[in-house]
Design a protein around this nucleic acid. Structure first.
Length: 430
RNA sequence: GUGAAAGUAGCUCAGUUUGGAUAGAGCAUUGGAUUGUGGUUCCAAGGGUCGCGGGUUCGAAUCCCGUCUUUCACCCCA
């Protein structure tokens, strides 16, 4: 009986596994050079962990289970709660700022679509214990540093940056009461996806006052933070939020990635736990979902029973990224091909023992080597070597019996030389 | 979770309109041509319960119903 793969999951055959490794290796390399340390947690946690703060949608999308002791558990749909738990446990002994990253495998029981599956990998970088905008800027820089490294340019992707604090300050200063903010956020978040008339209609439902709605439209149309002053009287909160956003943009400029970044008031993000700077990276053509998203979540550690400590971070899934890299031809051109250092071939069957010995000795020198299991002729073996993308072939034949010599053939150019076996093996290390 | 479209060999597809005999092609795989020299070429082979289940019919890949999966649009996110 054939059992199908589970909905929304992927099988990683060697070719796909190579892609996945290449993407994840890049994430790790860039994290480390930006000064982050790797951590990980368990793949499941108490169900309750996600009911505290993850937002309604994520809770509905949980894969949950009961263990044999009747405990309610869930496979992690995100790693940030785990991070909060881990940091809270050792908060008094961890030197700050805490700059940690992880590449967890996550599961959400969503309906699968292009760029969204039920099981995926997500690169997370977080800075905990620093409330200055420098930390937000570093998160965004690290994100761009990776995207730039894999070959994406400012013509391909753009980091759209905004601020929850700014949005709240603007809305408050034009007279929107605090309890009205959340439903308005939800509408503003959709602006980029809706036709202007639909957006206008939705906003009018939430903000019937023409004057207020007009100001919101004005704000949402801004392309630079400097336009905010013309819309409303600066309150203390507004000035503070503006300074923070300016500061992030100015650090990013100094770090040399200004061309990738811009203020975009349309970035609001889900209601979950963001409190300050928020950002998303999108493909410029706007064909795909967000490549990554992140922001400041200063209340999360406290919500998980710890002290009130500032935090900011980012998550990037592998699905959309891979589609974009594929589209741009950046995978095909950069993926390392499967390769083999040496293929050991046999010109006559009586040297089989030498073939095994040479293969093993090459391997023990740290080089990869294969030989053929088949009894075929040399021609067949070279064909097999070419199929495995071997860089060189070691051919064992009559010379071996006569003078302990082997033929070493360069598969790219075809040149070959006859060398003493011991000298050949000694040379491998140099 | 809601709505729509599509499922034929490992992959890309033909055949479905108009039901008819052992369901085809290219690529890929395996073997041979090739007993001391590979990537080319030529020949051959293997590989399908036509997604699955039921119905209509003398007869179903083809028509009908259900179901699963995928894709797209919502919802939301990475």
């Amino acid at each position: 009986m054939k059992i199908p793969p589970v909905k929304g999951t992927r099988d990683f055959y060697p070719e796909q596994m190579a892609r996945r490794n290449w993407i994840i290796d890049g994430w790790k390399k860039v994290s480390l050079r930006n000064g982050f340390e790797e951590y990980d947690g368990p793949i499941f946690e108490h169900l309750q962990m996600y009911q505290i703060k993850s937002g309604q949608e994520i809770v509905e999308q949980l894969f949950s289970l009961q263990d044999r002791g009747g405990r309610d558990l869930a496979i992690r749909p995100e790693i940030t709660p785990t991070l909060a738990r881990m940091v809270n446990q050792q908060i008094h002994s961890l030197p700050r700022p805490i700059k940690w990253f992880a590449v967890p495998r996550l599961c959400r029981a969503e309906r699968p679509q292009k760029g969204r599956l039920r099981e995926f990998f997500q690169w997370n970088v977080d800075i905990i214990g620093e409330d200055r905008a420098d930390a937000d800027a570093e998160i965004i820089f690290t994100t761009i540093d990776y995207l730039r490294t894999v070959g994406l340019t400012s013509k391909d992707v753009r980091a759209k940056i905004s601020s929850r604090r700014l949005l709240a300050a603007v809305l408050t200063s034009i007279g929107i009461p605090a309890e009205r903010l959340d439903p308005i956020y939800a509408v503003l978040d959709k602006k980029a996806k809706l036709p202007p008339e639909t957006f206008q209609a939705l906003l009018a439902e939430q903000v019937p006052d023409k004057d207020q709605a007009g100001k919101i439209h004005q704000f949402m149309a801004l392309e630079s933070v400097e336009g905010v002053a013309a819309i409303t009287q600066p309150t203390e909160a507004l000035t503070k939020a503006l300074d923070e956003l300016r500061s992030v943009l100015s650090v990013l400029k100094a770090m040399g990635v200004a061309e990738f970044c811009g203020f975009d008031p349309g970035i609001v993000r889900g209601l979950a736990y963001y409190t300050g700077i928020v950002f998303e990276v999108h493909d410029i053509a706007g064909e795909l979902r967000a490549i990554c998203g992140g922001g400041r979540y200063d209340n999360l550690l406290r919500d998980f029973g710890g002290p009130a400590i500032a935090a900011t971070g980012m998550g990037m899934g592998d699905c959309v990224l891979e589609i974009l890299l594929e589209q741009r031809g950046l995978l095909a051109s950069q993926m390392p091909k499967r390769g083999l250092d040496y293929f050991v071939a046999l010109a006559a069957p009586q040297f089989a023992d030498a073939m095994y010995e040479v293969t093993a000795r090459i391997r023990s020198q740290g080089r990869s080597a294969n030989f053929s299991y088949k009894q075929g002729g040399l021609s067949k073996q070279l064909k097999e070597a070419a199929g495995q993308n071997a860089r060189k072939c070691v051919i064992i034949g009559q010379e071996y019996k006569d003078h302990r010599e082997v033929v070493v053939k360069d598969m790219a150019g075809g040149a070959q030389e006859t060398v003493n076996l011991e000298q050949f093996l000694a040379r491998l290390n140099s």
